[in-house]
Amino acid sequence: MTVKLTTVRAGALTTVQDAGRPGHAHLGVPRSGALDAPAMRLANRLLGNEPGAAVLETTLTGCALRPDRAVTVVVGGAPCPVTVDGRPAAWGGPVRVPAGAVLEVGTVTAGVRAYVAVAGGIAVDPVLGSRSADLLSGLGPAPLRDGDVLPVGRPGARAAAPAAAPWPAPPAELVLPVRPGPRADWFTPAALRAFTSAAYRVSAQSNRIGLRTEGPALTRAKEGELPSEGMVLGAVQVPPDGRPVVFLHDHPTTGGYPVIAVVAEPALAAAAQAAAGTPLRFTLG
């Protein structure tokens, strides 16, 4: 007897995410997966799930879910109000949701993406070994719509970890450490200096494919497009408008705009929680 979750309110953008489907980039398949991967893993550990069990990733406005049997959930990532049938419940720790009750994950008070982990994990069918929704190429389950029903897996025998680790706060200022290359030579020396010294802001146009920025345009030393080349997670691509874009998990596997630098992967969790307008600096390191 497995639990089913009915989507009472899908929210602005709620997707199923796990550790993604790395290893298929050479076929044009994005890696996908939870943008704030440490938040996904912590929520799962608090339930005794595998760290990469599938969770729900919400965007700004949360979601509401109704299980047909009692389940235990953890809501973490971006801080937000949590209620069960209207009564306040814990954020960041296990919450018991009775059969037929409504778990309401409210609008975030900071950050962008809240994660809803369920004991047993979301059990939609995997595609290429992953249950993640890939919004660039459409692999995996579509974003949630009101009324969608999600299967939940059987909880494992693993013990739930105590809530020892704190949840990091969403960044008031986003500082992204970068290493130059592979195409830093496509930019003028002035642009390279500006890139690591200027004040940028996180653009409202950001999504799961890339964190877009507002700030000084970076001037190229070379014109034209590169022949298509492989792109890594965290690549800072500079399109013709000169505003750097940091590639997140649904990024295209190949691209033709030059990559000025690459952000260290551990910093991308904070990038996933940086709301539009957050001050942003790129630093060498």
Binding site: P22, G23, A25, H26, P227, S228, E229, G230, M231, V232, T253, T254
Partner: peptide, 15 residues
């Protein structure tokens, strides 16, 4: 190597 991703005149070795 986690990913071997050829391009037009490049091969990306990732992971």
């Amino acid at each position: 190597v986690a990913e071997i991703v050829p391009g037009a005149r490049t091969v990306l070795l990732d992971g």
